[in-house]
């Protein structure tokens, strides 16, 4: 088992003909992921071909879903069009929309989040995230489901769930696990933007409910209070060992001109506050980013 996606999940790629989307669609096909459709408005009827796989391109997500039965999507469209692409995926009834795009204006995401309120069907992950990987059983975890831009080969099928706001820091944690012979159930990059679809807490709840996940690594950063909220829930409800790391202890507090941000965050959001919340919740804190895997493995 795994969370959110399985090795046989049918995936479509929004923006498959752009250079970024095309490159990662190819890498996902190489990894053995079922990329069943591409969407690029105006290029419907054409095909995206790679490694002997012929992926049909559609003008709309609705068409792609109807024709191929895709249930998840990777959004690679440029920032000005990304909000529209995300909501198009939700409108087509997808279970999962993973927005990889970096640089979407906050206001656009505020509107997207509002539009998705009450939508129990579609889960948004991201934006500005590396995506999601459920490793497969083959060599270098081949045969898994890779939605996004994470390197597939660093993974290994197993029982640790990884959730993180940062891309390369996620890879670091995954690689530490794999290098120690420890595999992952699913790895989720939720993205670093101020407004995102899925929080640390949402993913932790899924890992807690997944019988195949035996331990969790949660990686956070300064800013917001999502890590604190997740820690509070872990303290009361989580039955599995959780280890964490917070990046940004040394980041300057900001050359901020105003005070409004400090008032609304009420002391939350600093690395110190997040680490304290982790400790209070019994979450193992990796003192340095080199010890993320070892901190968890010691608890298991």
């Amino acid at each position: 088992m795994s969370i959110l996606v399985k090795p046989n999940t049918k995936v479509l790629v929004q923006g498959i003909t752009g250079s970024f989307g095309a490159r990662h669609a190819q890498l996902s096909i190489d990894y053995g992921t079922a990329i069943v459709a591409g969407v690029t408005p105006g290029k419907g009827g054409q095909y995206f071909e790679h490694g002997g796989v012929k992926v049909p391109i559609f003008d709309t997500v609705a068409d792609a879903v109807k024709q191929t039965g895709a249930t998840a999507s990777a959004v690679f469209v440029p920032p000005p069009f990304a909000a529209d692409a995300i909501l198009e995926g939700a409108d087509a009834g997808l279970d999962l929309v993973v927005a990889i795009t970096e640089g979407i204006p906050v206001r656009d995401m505020v509107r997207v989040k509002r539009a998705l309120e009450g939508n129990t069907r579609t889960r948004l992950i991201g934006p500005n995230c590396p995506g999601i990987v459920t490793p497969g059983e083959g060599k270098d975890s081949h045969g898994g489901c890779r939605i996004g831009i994470a390197p597939g080969y660093i993974h290994k099928k197993g029982h640790i769930g990884v959730v993180s706001r940062s891309g390369t820091l996620t890879y670091e944690a995954v690689w530490q696990l794999t290098s120690r012979g420890v595999g992952q159930s699913t790895c989720v990059g939720i993205g670093g933007d101020p407004v995102n679809g899925t929080s640390h807490l949402d993913v932790i709840k899924l890992f807690n409910a997944d019988p195949d996940t035996h331990g969790i690594i949660m990686i956070g950063e300064i800013g917001g209070s999502a890590e604190e909220e997740a820690a509070e829930w872990v303290k009361k409800n989580c039955k599995k060992p959780v280890a964490g790391f917070i990046a940004g202890t040394t980041a300057p507090p900001g050359r901020r001109m105003g005070h409004a941000g400090a008032i609304v965050s009420g002391g939350k959001g600093t690395a110190e506050a997040k680490i304290a919340a982790f400790k209070a919740a019994g979450i193992g804190v990796a003192v340095t980013p080199s010890e993320m895997a070892d901190t968890l493995l010691k608890m298991m």
Partner: peptide, 17 residues
């Protein structure tokens, strides 16, 4: 000099550590 913002912050942290 690091690739990725999160890893860059974590690298700063480990230097201080």
């Amino acid at each position: 000099l690091v690739n990725g913002a999160g890893l860059a912050m974590a690298t700063m942290d480990i230097i201080q550590h």
